[in-house]
């Protein structure tokens, strides 16, 4: 075990030579800095491409019709701006083949059974519904909690989950709730997985926390959202 090795290395007593020590440490540090920077610079474009692909894949899976997307930011006062802005909620606007707004995707998270579950979900203002979720990170028990993304019946909950607003458009008309397996009777309810109620509820909570803020904030801003599509097309050669 580790201790054997460390003990061997513990008590070196050759003559003291500070200059040599500093020289060799400087040499090593320079060398290692050089190597790391080289690799980081070399891999940077590949990594950002990988990350972009991962984000794109997730967005397209929660907004089924989307073929292009734009990052946008939503601040506290429901003002939407292009690109990422620190301190604002990051949204992804997805557009279909004709450049029409196909939906908006954003991230949310809630504590699941083992650890926090992070999801991306798509919201379509046209149908006032959630169009899909994708679990980005979860440590739920394989075979039980992981049914939140492997169980087709559970995933089907989110093909058109109702998030209509109330009359004053200030909040959701019906909060998203997770009900016992087989008890789903309204389009805003999530039919839990039997045996994985905690994980199912976590998804419900994650959606409710985020949607109850984002959906009212976006209400009446479809034209604004649509405008980001035009900007994409203008940029493209």
């Amino acid at each position: 075990m580790s201790e054997k090795i460390i003990h061997l290395t513990e008590h070196p007593t050759p003559p003291f030579n500070s200059a040599a020590m500093i020289r060799s440490l400087t040499l090593i540090a320079t060398l290692s800095g050089l190597l790391v920077v080289l690799v980081v610079e070399w891999t940077r474009p590949m990594i950002s491409e990988n990350q972009r692909l991962a984000v794109e894949h997730a967005i397209f899976s929660v907004i089924p019709e989307a073929v292009s997307w734009q990052p946008i930011s939503l601040d506290e006062n429901a003002v939407i701006s292009a690109g990422k802005v620190a301190g604002s909620t990051l949204l992804y606007a997805g557009f279909n083949a004709t450049g029409e707004l196909a939906g908006v995707a954003t991230e949310s998270s809630a504590q699941g059974y083992a650890d926090a579950i992070r999801i991306l979900y798509g919201y379509n203002p046209a149908c006032d519904c959630i169009t899909g979720i994708k679990v980005l990170k979860s440590a739920e028990t394989p075979g039980l909690g992981d049914k939140i993304f492997t169980d087709a019946a559970f995933v089907a909950n989110f093909n058109a989950l109702d998030v209509r607003l109330n009359e004053s458009a200030s909040a959701l008309a019906n909060p998203i709730t997770t009900v016992m397996h087989g008890k789903k009777s309204h389009p805003w309810e999530i039919d839990a997985i039997s045996g994985a109620t905690i994980s199912s509820r976590a998804i419900g909570r994650a959606l409710q926390t985020s949607a109850s803020k984002v959906v009212p904030a976006l209400s009446g801003q479809r034209d604004k959202l649509q405008s980001f599509s035009a900007s994409t097309r203008a940029e493209q050669p």
Binding site: T9, P14, M21, S32
Partner: peptide
């Protein structure tokens, strides 16, 4: 080239680099 006294520190830096 590595002095005995700082060899562990050096090794760790080299390993961390890779």
């Amino acid at each position: 080239a590595i002095p005995k006294q700082v060899r562990i520190a050096t090794y760790i830096i080299i390993i961390a680099t890779f």
